[in-house]
């Protein structure tokens, strides 16, 4: 039942997304701009980590894509709520988890697709990384997108008015991006900033993907990354499902 309903809803939302190519490609624009206009600045710099600059930047851009893209997923639930679609679905016997997962999996699929696009463009720019590492990177994008989309839906439903959603997400996503060292590795940071950075979950995800991109798959950094990503996703889906139960009321 859970699988059936999740697949059903995933299919509906995936078809809606496919009908809007603008949405599919526009989301990849910001990381692509960083790739083109920021990436070349780093090629000669010492970045304090093993690996060349592309192996450090591209993992950061992948997670940036998930971070900014999925954080705004909540907008769609605000629309659905105002159309009455959200309540119409909540009145059916479909499990609240399926209602959430159908949407979240569509989001994860969209951002993994954009991540693939980004990597394909990064290769001619100079990225060299082992295939298993690249695939692991996509896995992290999927988990991060699923987690953040769930939290985004929950936040969108909880906020008293929809106008607050955009500013709220920007306020949360900007520090998250800066503190996790997405653009430049935190190896360059002074001690206090590095400590602060370790308090944000995204830090562990970026470090793990950077390790995977230089062919290290069994180091502690990768293990921590996996644990944090799974923990974050489990927590986010739980929070999201609860919010779907009461619609934030």
């Amino acid at each position: 039942m859970l699988l059936h309903d999740t697949a059903l809803l995933f299919g509906r939302y995936a078809r809606q997304t496919l009908r809007s190519p603008f949405q599919i490609f526009f989301g990849a624009l910001m990381p692509l701009l960083y790739l083109f206009f920021f990436g070349p600045l780093l090629t000669g710099l010492p970045l304090g980590r093993e690996g060349d600059s592309w192996q450090i930047l591209v993992p950061g851009l992948l997670l940036q894509l998930g971070l900014f893209g999925a954080s705004f997923a909540g907008f769609s639930i605000i629309m659905e709520k105002s159309w009455g679609v959200f309540d119409r679905m909540r009145v059916t016997p479909v499990s609240r988890l399926a209602l959430l997962l159908g949407r979240v999996l569509r989001d994860a699929a969209l951002f993994v697709f954009q991540a693939v696009l980004l990597v394909l463009v990064a290769v001619p720019m100079g990225l060299r990384a082992p295939l298993p590492g690249i695939l692991i990177g996509f896995g992290f994008v999927a988990l991060l997108s699923a987690a953040l989309a769930s939290l985004s839906y929950a936040l969108a439903l909880k906020l008293p008015s929809p106008q607050e959603f955009g500013p709220a997400i920007n306020t949360l996503a900007m520090p998250a991006m800066l503190l996790s060292g997405l653009m430049l590795p935190m190896a360059l940071a002074p001690g206090w900033l590095d400590v602060l950075s370790h308090l944000t979950p995204f830090r562990y995800l970026v470090d793990a993907v950077r390790e995977a991109y230089i062919g290290h798959y069994t180091t502690p950094a990768v293990l921590y990354g996996v644990l944090v990503a799974l923990g974050l996703t489990a927590l986010a889906v739980t929070v999201g499902t609860r919010t779907f139960r009461s619609a934030g009321a």
Binding site: Q16, W83, G84, P93
Partner: peptide
């Protein structure tokens, strides 16, 4: 609530249609 949902139908005052469908 799940058992209730299986037995009821609801038409909301403001409807519930997706404009993309």
């Amino acid at each position: 609530p799940a058992a209730v949902r299986r037995r009821i139908g609801y038409v909301a005052q403001s409807g519930g249609l997706d404009p993309q469908e």
